[in-house]
Amino acid sequence: MKKDVFRYNSCPAYRSMAILGSKWKPIIIYMLRERKARFGQLHAAIGTISKKVLTDMLKELETDGVLLREEFKELPPRVEYSLTEKGSTLVPIIVQLARWDNMHYESLTTTVS
């Protein structure tokens, strides 16, 4: 319900944050920027996310049309996640955030010490 308040708001920043408004979603998108990945691969690459939270974030990104979840009917069953066309348009924005962080990371670590 609370997310719907953001999703249907007239402000584009509110609507964008309804989709990206967690610390994990941009990281998941960044991890999928160049390839498909299975759940275990994403979990291992991110490392600090719980399996439950990763599952929830993947479901939300799929619902929002950012991710595609592809099931393969084989033994053992396999599922791969990839970015949709809509999700791919977020990659340059997230890469730019990563560049911004790289430019300012040293100044952040020297001021914290």
Score class of each variant (00 low, 15 high):
33 R>Q: 14
81 Y>T: 03
81 Y>D: 04
97 L>E: 04
99 R>D: 09
70 E>H: 14
9 N>R: 05
60 E>H: 15
5 V>S: 04
8 Y>A: 01
110 T>R: 10
17 M>Y: 02
58 L>R: 02
41 Q>M: 12
44 A>V: 13
42 L>C: 12
56 D>T: 10
95 V>I: 08
19 I>Q: 13
13 A>D: 02
12 P>L: 06
51 K>E: 11
6 F>H: 05
74 E>L: 10
35 R>L: 06
4 D>A: 08
112 V>N: 14
91 V>D: 15
100 W>Q: 05
109 T>S: 04
52 K>E: 11
27 I>R: 02
78 R>D: 13
18 A>N: 00
108 L>Q: 14
59 K>C: 02
11 C>T: 03
63 T>G: 05
71 E>L: 02
85 E>A: 01
80 E>C: 00
103 M>N: 14
67 L>P: 01
99 R>Q: 03
26 P>N: 03
95 V>M: 13
93 I>C: 13
79 V>W: 09
51 K>T: 11
9 N>K: 05
46 I>W: 01
69 R>T: 03
8 Y>L: 15
20 L>F: 00
6 F>E: 11
70 E>T: 13
97 L>A: 07
110 T>A: 11
15 R>M: 11
53 V>D: 12
112 V>S: 10
68 L>P: 03
43 H>P: 01
14 Y>G: 11
53 V>A: 09
67 L>K: 01
82 S>G: 07
64 D>M: 14
2 K>S: 14
10 S>E: 15
8 Y>Q: 12
4 D>G: 08
33 R>G: 02
89 T>H: 05
3 K>R: 08
20 L>D: 12
23 K>D: 07
105 Y>P: 01
90 L>Q: 02
38 R>D: 01
35 R>T: 15
48 T>Y: 01
37 A>V: 06
17 M>Q: 11
101 D>M: 05
28 I>T: 08
36 K>Q: 14
82 S>W: 06
111 T>C: 14
109 T>G: 04
49 I>M: 05
109 T>N: 15
95 V>H: 13
101 D>E: 12
60 E>S: 12
104 H>V: 11
84 T>D: 10
14 Y>N: 09
82 S>Q: 10
65 G>I: 01
24 W>A: 02
29 I>P: 00
25 K>T: 10
70 E>I: 15
31 M>S: 01
9 N>E: 15
81 Y>N: 06
109 T>Y: 02
109 T>P: 05
47 G>Q: 08
45 A>I: 04
40 G>K: 03
21 G>P: 01
12 P>V: 13
71 E>W: 03
75 L>A: 07
46 I>K: 00
36 K>E: 13
66 V>Y: 12
113 S>R: 09
64 D>L: 00
48 T>A: 10
78 R>A: 14
61 L>W: 03
87 G>T: 11
96 Q>G: 05
14 Y>F: 12
46 I>S: 05
102 N>I: 06
99 R>G: 02
77 P>G: 08
46 I>Q: 00
13 A>H: 07
111 T>W: 12
14 Y>T: 06
22 S>G: 06
106 E>A: 05
71 E>I: 03
31 M>Y: 07
41 Q>C: 04
81 Y>G: 12
84 T>C: 11
82 S>Y: 07
73 K>S: 13
100 W>S: 09
